[in-house]
């Protein structure tokens, strides 16, 4: 028996919004430690890794490890039927071929349930090597989304250059060149507005705007985003999900042809 309950459906809606542009379907691996999802996008350029800890749920029970393959378009249809403040409960029997998603209004006067067919997905888990990153940047998630959106107008690629002074995002194309520099913030009143750079050595990497923009669909989950970079390895874009876990996107760099 698997049962997981969250106080607000809005969190699940935001999580789905953060992955459904990259993935058509995905396997949710459930165990007593929580729910994990790891999947590559269709073009095998990026990898999405979602971790939801069992202690972040209002109620969590998982008697036996369970892998639930879900069509994310179908899940999105179901979540559209929930009000943001509804409680949401996911339930499945051991070895079941369906999952039940139930919404309850705060006053318990409206209860709806949706049974969704599960899929058998060929899932390949990838081993992600430990990396000592050269640069780790923490910045407001909205600012990162804004930069990715703005620079995508000028080029398919963005160059991220990180030094101890700051981080520079550049794009160059037919229109010309765009550069956005962010300096590390001095003192800020609010932690969520800070730009913090931890640098071991400077790094310059090129990434496809299309994927960065897809990752920023996770912006509503978190006030801050963390970018971890190292020469010739995938960028890690991480959004914390408060009290519940995190979503990490890995993006392979563009390399010299």
């Amino acid at each position: 028996m698997f049962e997981a309950r969250l106080g607000q459906a809005t969190i699940l809606k935001k999580i789905l919004d953060a992955i459904k542009d990259l993935l058509n379907e995905a396997t949710f691996d459930c165990s007593d430690s929580g729910i994990q999802l790891q999947a590559m996008d269709n073009s095998h350029v990026s990898l999405v890794s979602l971790t939801l800890r069992s202690d972040g749920f209002d109620k969590f029970r998982c008697d036996r490890n369970l892998s639930m393959g879900m069509n994310l378009g179908s899940m999105a249809k179901i979540l559209k039927c929930a009000n943001n403040e509804d409680n949401v409960t996911m339930k499945a029997q051991d070895n079941a071929d369906t999952v039940t998603i139930m919404f309850e209004s705060a006053n318990q006067e409206k209860v709806s349930d949706y049974e969704m067919k599960l899929m058998n997905l060929d899932q390949e888990h990838l081993g992600i090597p430990e990396t000592d990153f050269s640069c780790v940047v923490r910045m407001p998630a909205m600012e990162f989304a804004r930069i990715c959106r703005d620079l995508a107008q000028f080029s398919e690629s963005v160059v991220i250059c990180c030094t101890k002074e700051g981080v520079k995002f550049s794009a160059s194309g037919d229109v010309g060149t765009a550069n956005i520099k962010l300096a590390q913030t001095g003192s800020v009143d609010k932690e969520e507005e800070a730009v913090i750079i931890e640098m071991q050595e400077p790094v310059t990497l090129t990434f496809a705007c299309r994927y960065l923009n897809a990752f920023t669909k996770a912006t509503p989950l978190s006030t801050q985003v963390q970018l971890s970079m190292c020469a010739d390895v995938p960028l890690v874009v991480e959004y914390a999900i408060k009290d519940l876990g995190h979503i990490r996107y890995y993006l392979a760099p563009k390399i010299e042809d």
Binding site: M40, S43, H44, V45, S46, L47, E124, H125, L126, G127, I128, P129, S157, T206, A208, V233, P234, Y250, L251, A252, P253, K254, I255, E256, D257
Partner: peptide, 14 residues
């Protein structure tokens, strides 16, 4: 010119 690398160039299948 740059070309897009694949994620499997970096991460191996378990």
């Amino acid at each position: 010119k740059t070309k897009q690398a694949g994620i499997l160039n970096f991460f191996s299948k378990k």
